[in-house]
């Protein structure tokens, strides 16, 4: 049974210049022990879609979906009270900036304890014991002393570990990590990613990793969804995505990676820019920049075709058999 099932999720924001569609038709199907990576560049809507699931978007956002269910319960019509029982306990999230995600006025012990108290109703002693357990689990040395530390006394890597400890405190079934290592040094990033994967293994959690770092995706994920300008353009297993990307955007993105152009004079780029609010094309959103675009691409938006974990939004996918079509 799927843990999180989403069909046709869309998010619209009210802005100064009218309504803006940040997420447009996302399908998702996560089962236990899945590791799903959602990749995309700025403006792709990857963070917004997960924030919508968590109910963390501002009031100016309008969320619509055909299905948005967690363990069979409808997240769209749920009351805030019911939602608060799920968020933080069964679904958890960690964010990009660990230094600003922790409340600077309270100690680490207090903040971890808060989650335990709210969701599991533990008493003070039990909370202390469990907090120390959690800090050890995430690899923080001398956990008893760390409980009394304030966030500003911790380094970036430590803060992120504390965040992870808070997120797994109630043994969630699904952990969403929104760019968890972008703000960290590369050796610390490796430690944090390893930690997330080992926790996922040990606890049988599902992990959703939102990132723009393709290297992390290649080394960590099992499934990958690629997003562009709010739309989901491709989903594949990780090996397939990197060896035979079907959507021209994925193809172009991978070609633009510095490591793929080692022998070349210049790096291949994608001409043009991501469409903003005012200049969305009529047809496929990527068509103005696509080297394989044809007339039908500009006439109408390609539908998302495919089943389950293999989807594609393109009329003329890249053909790796011979040449791109």
């Amino acid at each position: 049974m799927s843990l999180l099932e989403i069909r046709n999720l869309s998010v619209d924001f009210q802005t100064v210049s009218g309504s803006f569609r940040a997420v447009d038709g996302v399908n998702l199907d996560i089962r236990e022990t899945d590791i799903l990576a959602i990749v995309g560049e700025s403006g792709s809507g990857k963070s917004v879609s997960m924030l919508a699931v968590m109910g963390l978007l501002p009031w100016t956002a309008k969320i619509t979906a055909d299905i948005m269910e967690f363990e069979g319960r409808d997240l769209l019509t749920i009351s805030s009270r019911e939602r608060r029982k799920i968020i933080g306990q069964d679904i958890s999230m960690i964010f990009q900036e660990p230094m600003s995600s922790l409340n600077p006025c309270f100690t680490v012990g207090f903040q971890i304890g808060e989650t335990l108290k709210e969701h599991l109703g533990m008493d003070r002693n039990a909370r202390k014991i469990r907090s120390i357990e959690l800090l050890e689990l995430v690899g923080i040395p001398a956990p008893e002393e760390r409980l009394k530390a304030f966030p500003h006394q911790l380094s970036g890597g430590m803060s992120q570990r504390v965040m992870i400890a808070m997120a797994i405190a109630c043994s969630p079934k699904l952990l969403i990590a929104d760019e968890p290592t972008t703000a960290l040094d590369v050796t610390i990033q490796a430690q944090i990613i390893d930690l997330l994967v080992s926790l996922q293994n040990d606890k049988g959690m599902a992990l959703v990793l939102i990132t723009h770092d393709m290297g992390v995706v290649a080394e960590t994920a099992k499934q990958v969804i690629v997003m562009y300008a709010g739309q989901q353009v491709e989903q594949q297993e990780v090996e397939g995505l990197f060896s035979t990307p079907r959507h021209p955007y994925t193809n172009a993105l991978l070609n633009a990676l510095p490591e793929r152009s080692l022998g070349l004079d210049r790096l291949p780029t994608i001409e043009g820019v991501v469409p903003g609010a005012g200049d969305r094309p009529n047809g496929c959103l990527f068509s103005p920049r696509c080297e394989f675009a044809q007339d039908d691409c500009e006439a109408q938006i390609p539908p998302l075709v495919g089943t389950g974990t293999n989807t594609l939004r393109c009329f003329h996918p890249v053909d790796h058999g011979g040449h791109g079509e």
Partner: peptide
């Protein structure tokens, strides 16, 4: 350690992950 920690898409470019213990 730096090279090992840098994630790479191409498996041929990946180096053995050197586990660096501790913080800076």
């Amino acid at each position: 350690a730096l090279l090992g920690a840098t994630p790479a898409v191409d498996p041929k470019l990946r180096r053995e992950r050197v586990k660096l213990t501790g913080e800076l």
